[in-house]
Write a protein that binds this DNA or RNA. Structure first.
Length: 785
DNA sequence: ATTCGCAAAGTTTTT
DNA sequence: CTTTGCGAAT
């Protein structure tokens, strides 16, 4: 076989690649070359003469989309296949067809915190009695309803369900608030598109014909709304191919519906099913252990995982005395492997069930000088100052965005208080008018004081003035926002240390804007900028090339692989998590989670638990995870760093379908130990001969520098060595800087735009007003102080 | 209108 | 042990 698309592929893989028309289900075990098969299949479709714009590939994450796009581009250069996340795809459709569901094309996408505060505001404004339910619980239930295609108008509470009764009151009001603000939450994007396709057959037919070939990745994680969308687009042309692994479904709690994949064959009777069961990633020992565990699940499609890889080291299972010993021992193992030249830091990954467990590992790694990075959630774009500034931009793009209005109307303080805003909000709601519009004629609102009215009107004028600039490059617009809103001055005037950091973050955002501007030449891309920002995740910026040990939750590990994996805290109450105790379905999901974690390992897999674990400030005696009893521990290498705890195991029932007795679980106070401060679990090893401690990089610390600077071409675009060298490099100028001009005197930089020799500055002079300069040739010079 | 202090709660989180 | 949110106090 000399077909390059089929070279080195197994029969099963070739079957999938060569499949053209009709439904296709690819059941792909971990490490089975799934992405390769999918991209090769796309290349094959293109080769048979199918137009690139007839093909749509949907993924869940930006990362996956980017990876797929990259690989398709390599196989079939110059064919712009639409590879997108579900949400981006839906956003695009809604910009085009949103009118059908009551949205203007400039709608705003609310992130979780925006939705949350809209929800709270709605509850507050309508004075709805929520009983003892928290807004989170209500939000979660609304989200559940949306994911299950139940729009507000059709929501019926189940009789006898108090939460349902509360939601029945709030959901419609919340939805109205969103629509009023011309905004959607994440779930809406899917729900709106699903409803739109259901209720507008002509649109559905059109789109079905447009997207003849649809490929869905991670199909086991689709929810009902996503399922409905994909189905609606594959009726006249049922060339739908889905890829997934029921055993790797770990997002059930977010509405993912396992039956979508389990019943795919039922939905499409003529489906071609391909099983990719050969694993190219792990050793036999690792795969065998993982397969043994997952076999305990009942709701699954049985797969026969195998590999031609070697047997490899036995899986290691270590019981430590304490979590501290666990962390230190892992750190020292890593140190010695690196020092011996066997491994590099990036070869290692440490997984845990909950973020809070990263703590002792961090300490141990810092002490041992192990360079590490944590994949977690303190996100750059969620920071207060970034959200504030972004809210200004949002308001400019969508004047109905009440959430953005409320966020910035008194930021910095303009003397507009809570009471005034509540009056304004009530009036705006009852008259169904955006708050910003009402602010412009605040005098018509009863009960507002003189000062607030004046301040509100002035704010409206400010926004109006800034809206004249929305076609400008985002960086420049942002500059004007920062200086003219007084936001930057407010941060600069502050003497709080935190505000200095905020200022730096705002600078970072300017850099992000600049990168965006360079990637998207032309006018009027504000909306795209906003959409891009709210649909990215900070881990999208995590640099896989960094030579660091990676720490992350089991959930975050999906889709990745590492030579050496440490799976920590395999303890009852954590894995499986305590909260899954009641529901058998959730227990199966926990088992899948462990399965996912184990199958990330290529060469070495280390499972560990601690006899005592400090968690939430308390030291507790732990109970081994029941999953350990479902694993072939007899063939493991078992280490007991502390006293023997394995005799306890005899008391536990084992075997499929059984569960541990209820009287031992994490969080059971009867096991709380008090007064022991020293766990004595010290492990000593030579720290000095290793490199100096390296500061950890948090994904949130500085996403911007990597942002969009990943290709050589883009890096080349940054080359500023060409062109006439200015007396002062254009790069020394920054937004808000005070500069001197020989003729106009001293002024302040309002905004910057462009790059290299074309970099422009807008400067405001007290005596001569605003002027624009080309920095490379201008006589502007920074003024010190 | 901010700031401080205390109470309460605390999985996972592709977008 | 944290973080977060709310209410009271300046």
């Amino acid at each position: 076989m000399d077909d390059p698309l089929l070279a080195n592929l197994t029969q099963a893989q070739q079957d999938a690649v060569l499949h053209v028309d009709g439904p296709l289900l690819i059941l792909a075990g971990p490490g089975s070359g799934k992405t390769r098969v999918v991209t090769h299949r796309i290349a094959n479709l293109l080769r048979t003469g199918i137009h690139a714009n007839r093909i749509l590939a949907l993924t869940f994450t930006n990362k996956a989309a980017e990876e797929m796009r990259r690989r398709v581009e390599r196989l079939a250069p110059g064919k712009p296949v639409w590879v997108s996340t579900f949400h981006r795809f839906c956003a695009k459709l809604l910009r085009e067809h949103g009118r059908l569901v009551g949205l203007n094309e400039n709608f705003t996408i609310y992130d979780t915190s925006d939705s949350q505060s809209t929800l709270k505001r709605t509850i507050d404004l309508l004075d709805i009695d929520t009983g003892h339910f928290t807004p989170q619980q209500i939000a979660h239930h609304i989200s559940w309803a949306k994911n299950n295609l139940i729009p507000a108008a059709q929501y019926q509470p189940r009789p006898g369900h108090p939460l349902g009764a509360v939601v029945a009151k709030i959901y419609p009001a919340y939805q109205q608030a969103l629509l009023q603000a011309n905004a959607v939450d994440f779930d809406d994007m899917l729900l709106h598109v699903a409803m739109l396709l259901r209720e507008n057959p002509e649109v559905r037919t059109l789109l079905d014909a447009r997207f003849r070939y649809i490929l869905v990745d991670e199909y086991q994680d689709t929810n009902l709304a996503q399922y409905a969308i994909v189905r609606a687009l594959s009726m006249d042309y049922p060339n739908l191919s889905v890829t997934g692994d029921p055993d790797q479904s770990i997002y059930g709690w977010r509405g993912a519906n396992l039956s979508n994949i389990l019943e795919f064959e039922h939905d499409y009777p003529d489906v071609n099913v391909v099983r990719l069961e050969q694993n190219y990633r792990s050793t036999k020992a690792i795969l065998r252990a993982a397969a043994t565990l997952i076999a305990y699940n009942k709701k699954r499609k049985e797969k026969d995982l195998f590999t031609d890889n070697g047997e490899g080291d036995p899986v290691r299972l270590t019981t430590y005395f304490s979590n501290r010993e666990e962390a230190q021992s892992i750190a020292s193992r890593i140190v010695s492997d690196i020092r011996a030249g066997r491994r590099r830091p990036r070869d290692f990954a440490i997984f845990y069930r909950v973020n809070a467990l990263s703590r002792s590992l961090e300490f141990a790694f810092r002490d041992a000088g192990v360079p590490y990075q944590i994949v977690n959630g303190v996100e750059f774009f969620q920071r207060q100052e970034i959200k504030d500034v972004m809210s200004y931009l949002r308001l400019l793009n969508n004047p109905s965005d009440d959430e953005a209005f409320l966020r910035v109307v008194n930021t910095p303080a303009r003397g507009i208080g809570k009471t005034s805003l509540k009056r304004l909000a009530e009036h705006a709601r009852s008259h169904r008018v955006p708050m910003l519009a009402l602010a412009g004629r605040a005098e018509t609102v009863e009960g507002l004081g003189k000062k607030p009215v004046a301040a509100l009107r002035e704010f409206a004028i400010l926004i109006d003035r800034l809206s004249q600039l929305t076609l400008k490059p985002v960086e420049e617009l942002l500059g004007h926002v920062l200086s003219e809103s007084g936001y930057q001055a407010h941060l600069q005037a502050s003497d709080e240390a935190a505000d200095e950091e905020r200022l730096a973050n705002v600078e970072e955002l300017l850099t992000v804007a600049r990168d965006f501007d360079e990637r998207t030449p032309g006018e009027g891309h504000l909306e795209e900028f906003l959409e891009e920002i709210c649909l990215v995740n900070d881990t999208d910026f995590l640099d896989g090339e960094e030579d660091r040990v990676t720490l992350m939750t089991l959930h975050a590990s999906k889709g990745l692989e590492f030579p050496v994996v440490f799976l920590t805290a395999v303890e009852h109450g954590l894995l499986p998590h305590e909260r899954s105790r009641e529901h058998p379905d959730e227990l199966e999901e926990e088992r899948r989670l462990m399965f996912v974690g184990m199958t990330r390992a290529q060469e070495e897999l280390n499972l560990s638990m601690a006899r005592y674990r400090e968690f939430r400030g308390q030291r507790r005696l732990t109970v081994p995870s029941q999953f350990l009893m479902e694993l072939p521990v007899a063939e493991f290498e078992r280490n007991e760093a502390a006293e023997n705890v394995w005799h306890d195991f005899a008391e536990y029932p084992a075997g499929p379908g059984s569960s541990t007795s209820d009287d031992h679980h994490f969080g059971d106070d009867s096991h709380a130990e008090q007064g022991t401060d020293d766990d004595g679990g010290d492990i000593s090893f030579d720290v000095d001969s290793f490199d100096a401690p390296t500061a950890p990089t948090k994904s949130a610390a500085a996403p911007a520098p990597n942002y969009a600077l990943q290709t050589a071409a883009q890096l080349a675009g940054h080359d500023r060595s060409q062109g006439a060298p200015p007396a002062v490099s254009p790069d020394v100028f920054h937004q808000g800087m005070v500069v001197r001009h020989p003729e106009y005197g001293v002024g302040k930089i309002l905004a910057l735009s462009g790059a290299g020799v074309k970099r422009m500055a807008t400067v405001s002079f007290p005596t001569h007003g605003q002027k624009k300069f080309m920095l490379a040739v201008s006589p502007l010079r920074p003024v010190k102080g």
